[in-house]
Simulated assay, not measured.
Amino acid sequence: MDFNPTKATVHNEGCDLHYWYQGKGPLITFVPGGNGHGRQFNNIIAALSDNYTCVTFDRRQMSASKVKVNKKLSPPQQARDIRAVIKAVGFDKSIIFGSSSGGIFAFQFAHDFPEMVDHLIAHEAPTTTLLPDASEVLEWFLHLMEVYETRGLEQAAGEFRSKLIGYADEGIPKTVPPEPENPRNFWDNEFPVLLGFVPNLWRIKDNKTSIGVMRGVRSKDAFFARTTDEQAKILDCPRFLVPGHHQGFEVETEEFLPYFLFMLDTLERKRSGV
């Protein structure tokens, strides 16, 4: 289907959340990560909207979803924003796809609103404190915060980007860049919270939420890819190796899509006991 979404806003807790949706059928909600904007999901929304209603949004304090005064990230508030978008589109539950920190917010949504989750797919959610080398990763994160505070955004972001493996692979299209203010909000207000935050995955497992996790083949052994191994152990859930890098769903959509649909089928069959 061509990409021709309906655009709207929903007000939630002091923020007009800008969202857009199209299609027919069960709802899939696409949750952005640290880059904050929903445009990265436009390709996969177009590809899926013959059979699904697909919605995404700009997260609060990112892109079009501005507030009067930016505040420190609250993962529970991010979960409530997801709930507000789902309700605004007219649904009581949704399939959730979250990538990067969007996967962390998806986990938080599953923790806080389990009754609203149909299936959840977390793509390279960086729950780094679960890693065997969590101490080394945490100290690197703290180093990045010091670099940001003393040497500025470009230096810190450049060191961080060095870990985004696969983006420079030959023949791979460039991702859609975020608005210039998004990285500043990420480093000021989100990164300090995310570097040590992990939703309670054990509670999510106890709730028997239908979950699968994905890691991109181009990400190799990047820290955000390896976290999926630990998540799958805790959640006892399917883990797929899928095409692409950390945003492979955006730039290798045609290759990524069959794995996405197979994950949904796998989760449906697991829930049905097949």
Rank of each mutant, 00 (worst) to 15 (best):
P75T: 07
V67S: 04
E190F: 01
V55K: 00
P192E: 06
K220S: 10
F262D: 13
C237M: 05
D221M: 12
V31L: 10
Q247R: 10
F197W: 14
T29V: 14
K163V: 06
N189L: 05
G216A: 05
A225G: 09
D265K: 15
E252T: 14
R80S: 12
E159H: 09
S94P: 10
D236H: 14
L73R: 13
N12G: 02
D169N: 15
G33M: 04
W187Y: 11
F57C: 06
M263W: 02
R218K: 15
L142N: 15
Y167T: 15
Y167E: 14
S162A: 13
A88H: 08
V217E: 13
A232M: 10
D81F: 03
L235F: 07
L138P: 05
R184G: 02
M214Q: 11
A79M: 09
I28K: 01
L144I: 14
A168N: 15
V242P: 00
D58G: 03
I234E: 01
E13K: 15
T29K: 00
P238G: 09
Y19D: 07
H11D: 12
S99F: 00
P178S: 09
E139I: 08
A106M: 04
S94K: 09
F105M: 13
R203E: 15
D92P: 01
V31Y: 00
H37R: 07
